[in-house]
Design a protein around this nucleic acid. Structure first.
Lengths: 211, 211
DNA sequence: ATTGGCCATATTTGGTCATG
DNA sequence: CATGACCAAATATGGCCAAT
């Protein structure tokens, strides 16, 4: 990426895919904005819905940027109460095992596979011309005939669907917070408060990813 | 189906001010979306900047909606390390103070003054509104003098608790790890939260809010 | 209670420059 | 390293309706 196109004309917001950013220089700037944006949103939610939210974030530089309302202590306490673990001597926080991340990692791998497969197929039919200048799909896909291209697209679409479905299942299936230790002790509070609501993520976030 | 007024142009997003939302059923809907949005953004940041973020949020219904990457424990520990350079034995969480609140509170205070004024005027003409159907900062709150901020916090807290209606006692006497405020004992509401130490944060976001 | 569409509009953010 | 400002394009959301 590193689209270094200095134009006099303003470019407006650019779209970037979800991957570790490389342009450290420029991104440092962006992070500042986004971090603020995140807190701003959290704050907004707190006020509008009368809820409490705590955010612990770190800047790429490693600097901590906390946000909390009304205060971090009460929130953490509440969380602990909510999950009400049984270990009195050892306070441990709910192990927020974000299913989304798991899936994300896995999906990235799968996509890699699929990608290779597609490329392999493409190369079998047509021949090389690995321009290699653009994104992984630019070169190869570009060499496909309209027919192949169509099927390729369908293939990817199918993949996307599967991926989406999978993520969906994961969300609904594992929306329980896994406490640090594989607890076997019974909950001490109303059972309906033990379960975490389904992890917030919706599969539509995948739409923002560029496969 | 869904053909009420095909002609009628939809309204599109509406602007709403930042105040406790009128418990409308509709807003419950909105919260779901917004919460998702928050997590989505956090997730995005985590990936793009390779940073770690943890979010502990509660829905108006009192359900916890955690988000964390890579995992909440490491993040909290990191925070402790970062903020607590001295006593490793006495673990206490950084007293997250957020300037956003400062500004907000300040403005609310000003607003209160105005409200108070106009209310006084109104009462001179009309009759008392003992019904108190106003918002939490309406009327009487303004008469609290120099304790507005504390009151405000308490109000919000009370509200939160009401909505939450949570269980809770089962206190686990944790002697090992003290998960409390550094010095103050008041569990939930700590007026110190309102005006405390510094932490880089901009307040320009207030420009977007309508008081 | 929580989510998923739809659509139009309100906000946010990327890339750049400039300032503590 | 962290922000402010600017402009334009990319997203996120408010109502509304419906489904789980």
């Amino acid at each position: 990426m590193i689209n270094k196109n200095a134009e006099k004309k303003r470019m407006g917001r650019k779209k970037i895919d979800i991957k570790l950013i490389e342009n450290k220089n420029n991104l440092q700037v962006t992070f500042s904005k986004r971090r603020n944006g995140l807190s701003r949103k959290a704050f907004d939610l707190c006020i509008k819905y009368g809820t409490s939210i705590a955010i612990l974030a770190f800047s790429p530089a490693g600097r901590p940027y906390p946000f909390a309302h009304p205060d971090i202590d009460s929130i953490i306490h509440r969380f602990i109460r909510t999950h009400n673990n049984e270990e009195p001597s050892n306070v441990h926080y709910p192990h927020v095992h974000n299913p989304l991340m798991d899936e994300y990692s896995r999906l990235v791998k799968e996509l890699e596979e699929e990608k290779k497969l597609s490329l392999a197929l493409a190369q079998r039919k047509k021949m090389p011309n690995s321009g290699g200048s653009g994104f992984w799909w630019d070169a190869e896909v570009g060499s496909l005939g309209s027919h192949e291209l169509t099927s390729w697209v369908e293939s990817v679409e199918r993949l996307r669907e599967n991926v989406a479905k999978r993520v969906g299942e994961v969300q609904k299936g594992s929306n329980q917070v896994e406490v640090g230790a594989p607890s076997s002790s019974p909950p001490l509070v109303d059972s309906d408060t033990i379960n975490l609501a389904p992890l917030p993520e919706s599969i539509d976030f995948l739409e923002h990813y560029q496969f």
